[in-house]
């Protein structure tokens, strides 16, 4: 399996736990970073397919890290799974605003992580760029519509389709 995953967590124990779960999933191309700064470096060098990031780290928090990735890293559309021990509405909103792709609540269960990774692999979210937001599309489209988009997508931005998804406008779009 060629999937590459980057684990970003200041706690060596949590990194070991996540790595163990990923190894059991058959994912062995895994790198670790103990700080957000180190993780940004790894994004350049290792080019991960998914990053699994802890919410609370000393120095730069997981949310700050996500904002940096979305705002100016080498891979702004990198799928990011955030691990969090707290899932208050305030945090969830802040994380979505920052551009988190998926959440896994702590305590981390292998099943929850499996589901979130599968979600990213099997149903990749499109990205939204507006005046105030850049991040994954939180709406869930019909699978046929997603497939249609993929077939119709061209490498050039700018195909005008005004109103095509007006009824599905997501909260994050102003």
């Amino acid at each position: 399996m060629n999937l590459r995953i980057l684990i970003v967590d200041d706690h060596a124990g949590m990194r070991r736990l996540t790595k163990t779960i990923l190894a059991a999933f058959g994912i062995r191309r895994v790198r670790e970073a103990s700080t957000a700064e180190e993780a940004l470096e790894q994004i350049r060098e290792f080019e991960p397919d998914i990053a699994i990031v802890d919410f609370l780290m000393p120095g730069m928090t997981g949310l700050d890290f996500v904002k940096l990735v979305r705002g100016g890293s080498d891979d702004p559309m990198l799928p990011i799974i955030m691990l969090t021990a707290s899932s208050t509405q305030h945090l969830v909103t802040a994380a979505r605003d920052a551009g988190v792709t998926e959440f896994v609540a702590k305590p981390v269960s292998p099943e929850a992580l499996r589901r979130r990774i599968n979600e990213i692999i099997l149903h990749p979210r499109n990205f939204i760029r507006s005046a105030t937001f850049f991040g994954p599309d939180r709406r869930r489209k019909r699978p046929e519509a997603v497939e249609e988009d993929r077939r119709a997508a061209t490498p050039e931005a700018g195909t005008p389709e005004a109103g095509s998804d007006a009824t599905e406008a997501q909260e994050r779009v102003p």
Binding site: D75, D149, T154, P174
Partner: peptide, 29 residues
């Protein structure tokens, strides 16, 4: 990176935004 294409859309409220289609290549990996 990861971009397969994009559309310009208009939200219900009349705001314009870009929807970027993400390359679907992780299944292969």
């Amino acid at each position: 990176k990861r971009k397969a294409g994009s559309f310009i859309r208009v939200s219900e409220k009349g705001y314009t935004y870009e929807e970027i289609v993400v390359a679907d290549d992780l299944k292969t990996k």
